[in-house]
Design a binder for these strands. Structure first.
Length: 485
RNA sequence: GGCCCGUUCGUCUAGCGGUUAGGACACCGCCCUCUCAAGGCGGAGAUCACGGGUUCGAAUCCCGUACGGGCUACCA
């Protein structure tokens, strides 16, 4: 039997880091076994669900390279893939449960229920529904329903049902005693299905074989199993993933900074790095591997190596990993990803970038070697695109020092008619410190600040080559005004 | 309150009865060096939450306790 899994986010926000990890695990599991990966949108909460969020989730999935076989935009044989388009199915399912005697109407008011809950809890135990309306006889119940009395439909948990046991693929055998599950609501007063009912209908209709989801659903599992059983449908295998926390051990939230995949993209993180980091946050190949590409992940992923304990999201490690992936890019690959950042900063246009691709290709490796996030590109290369003004602090540390003026003068002279390539530039500039009896660092830092405006920049000889002789000499001359003496 | 889940260096993890408890990030030195990175070498860092068992032997198995988390809605 072929495996079918689903990722089922609510479009109440963008794709969250935790959701992304759940999606990755589902995807990797399906791909590993040649199964089917379904994307289903759980949009039954009209207050908070938006089309914009659905689009954002789909975009984030694409960004990460999580291709799905069925779902919004791609269709499939078991759709529709939006819960709001499946209400007729939920109604059919409910009719089935009514007919088979697994569902009964409950006329208790919200106030009554709250009171029962409180007393149940006060007595120190079960706080679920007390099953009052179970004892309303069928005829009477039918009459009240027909008369239009407000009611919900509840699941009738079988009297003789023993412990509810399932073998969670992550946590192992998990047991809930039957009396800890109450006759929960399947359909609300307005007829709409509750989550625990809709999910079962969907998973059943979509022939889902493995439900891989956050462990906030662990306690929902026995309820859902009872619905599968009432419907006389096979119960899928469950795998519950522990949560991802912020650095303080609390639920990951805005307080911790970026929480959505798109936010990390905008911060300059590569999809490969996000995928790799998340994949290993709660799953391991062998305990040694820290860099793993999508292909290797797909080839080796298994549920039994998912860890049971919650993990803290460590941005520092993600950042390191992002740097690894950036350095792995070829000049051509880096160029493609760099241009949008230059463009967004107004340093160049797509047309200009194309016209100067050979020049940008030389710049690419100088930058990719020394950044961890793509957003670091702009401040590092801005001096190549526009005029610079060194900060006072930079001037104080370099140009204002003894010998700086002489260094700039000597550099200008040396560069006046040398061949304009990094090697030649280096050859003549290397002689300057000795000539002036200055430390190399003093000379090169003075040139760096004069030309780039910064204390930190790409290697100086290559930088000059890329800048061009004319601009270089002009900036060296201008910087004379900033020197001491 | 009830039910359920979790607990190995600061962080992510390996370990599935016998290991000097391994790796990665972060951290600290040294080397390289025109800055910053990268890289190389080395270092520090875990009484495996705690307490009982079982066993010749337990981070690994069992039972408690503590702490953390989830569910307990006509939210998902």
């Amino acid at each position: 039997m072929t495996v079918r899994v689903r990722f089922a986010p609510s479009p109440t926000g963008h794709l969250h880091i935790g959701g992304a990890r759940t999606a990755i695990y589902n995807w990797a599991f399906a791909r590993n076994l040649g199964g089917t990966f379904v994307l289903r949108i759980e949009d039954t909460d009209p207050e908070r669900s938006t089309q914009e969020n659905t689009d954002a989730i789909v975009r984030a999935m694409e960004f990460l390279g999580l291709d799905y076989d069925e779902g919004p935009g791609v269709g499939g044989d078991y759709g529709p893939y939006f819960q709001t388009q499946r209400f007729d199915r939920y109604a059919e399912g409910l009719e089935e449960l009514k007919a088979s005697g697994h569902a009964y109407p409950c006329f208790c008011s919200a106030e009554e229920l709250a009171a029962k809950r409180d007393t149940g809890r006060a007595k120190g135990g079960f706080a679920g529904y007390d099953r009052t309306c179970r004892s309303v006889d069928a005829e009477n119940a039918a009459a009240r329903v027909a008369a239009g009395e407000p009611h919900v439909w509840r699941l009738k948990v079988p009297e003789d049902r023993g412990d509810i046991v399932f073998d969670d693929a992550v946590r192992g055998e998990t047991v809930f005693s039957a009396d800890s599950v109450d006759d929960f609501v399947l359909a609300r007063t307005d007829g709409s299905p509750t989550y625990n009912f809709a999910v079962v209908m969907d998973d059943a209709d979509m022939l889902i074989t493995h439900v891989i989801r956050g462990d906030d659903h662990l306690s929902n599992t026995p309820k859902q199993m009872l619905v599968f059983e009432a419907l006389d449908l096979p119960v899928p295998t469950f795998a519950h993933l522990s949560m991802i926390w912020g650095a303080d051990g609390k639920r990951l939230s805005k307080r911790h900074g970026a929480t959505s995949v798109e936010a990390y993209r905008d911060l300059g993180y590569l999809p490969e790095a996000i995928m790799n980091y998340l994949a290993l946050l709660g799953w391991s190949l062998d305990g040694e591997t820290t860099i793993i590409d999508a292909e290797t992940l797909k080839a080796n992923f298994s549920l039994d190596r998912i860890s049971k304990n919650a993990a803290i999201f460590d941005v520092e490690k993600l950042e390191w990993m992002n740097g690894v992936y950036i350095r792995e890019l070829s000049a051509e690959q880096f160029l493609v990803r760099m241009v949008p950042w230059l463009e967004a900063a107004g340093l160049t246009t797509v047309e200009e970038a194309e016209a100067r691709s050979e020049w940008l290709l030389r710049l690419a490796p100088l930058v990719s070697e020394r950044i961890k996030r793509m957003d670091e590109i702009v401040p590092m290369v801005a001096f190549l695109f526009r005029d610079v003004t060194p900060s006072e602090a930079a001037v104080a540390k370099t140009l204002a020092k003894d010998g700086a003026r002489a260094a700039l003068v000597a550099a200008s002279a040396a560069l006046a008619d040398v061949d304009w390539d990094a090697a030649s530039i280096e050859a003549v500039l290397r002689e300057v410190p000795a000539q002036l009896e200055l430390k190399p660092k003093v000379v090169f830092q003075a040139i760096r600040v004069a030309v780039t405006g910064e204390l930190v920049s790409p290697p100086i000889f290559e930088s000059l080559e890329l800048l061009g002789r004319e601009t270089t000499l002009a900036r060296l001359a201008d910087a004379g005004a900033l020197c001491g003496e």
